[in-house]
Amino acid sequence: SIYWISQADCQADDKFIFPVVLSGFSSDVSVEVWAGESGVDCSNVDNRTTATQKCWKVSATYNPSQGFTPEIVVPARTILARDLTNAAASATPGADVCTNSTYSDSRNGVPIVLSFLPIQGVSSSIAGIAFTKVRIDLGGPDAPAKLELGVGENRLSLSWGQVTTGDITGYQFFCDPPPG
């Protein structure tokens, strides 16, 4: 199953909650979740370093002790914000990311990989696990263009151009009669 992030999810400030089991963690190792577009390896520290950053941090930094079972929270808006400017971005994005961000026009499901990484020290990491089932789809399809109305006997016939900018489930047409 795919975990979609829709415009309504963003407006509602939806959050993913991942219960995880951690083992073998020493006190100097923490857990962070980083997001990247499909094909980018967020376990590579170069992709998490400001100058060359391709991944962005989407969770708090968790400092588990041995045997601790945390629930890791990843706000959808933090994924959508795609904040590459600060490796430790902590601000909670507002609703403006729903309509004014890298992904606010996405219509076809941008695949996002969430990497759960054990972080030790400033710049190192070892391979964590990847959650690959998040997709972003904030925008609906465009309205059809080239709508034409033809006259038939006792009916009107509509024709229109196919819409290709999104996942189409159907078309609905409404008549807007003049006042009176």
Partner: peptide, 15 residues
């Protein structure tokens, strides 16, 4: 070594 275990069926959403 550190291991992280995530069970997909346990993933929840806040809504």
């Amino acid at each position: 070594a550190q291991t992280i275990t995530l069970t997909e069926t346990s993933v929840r959403r806040s809504e």
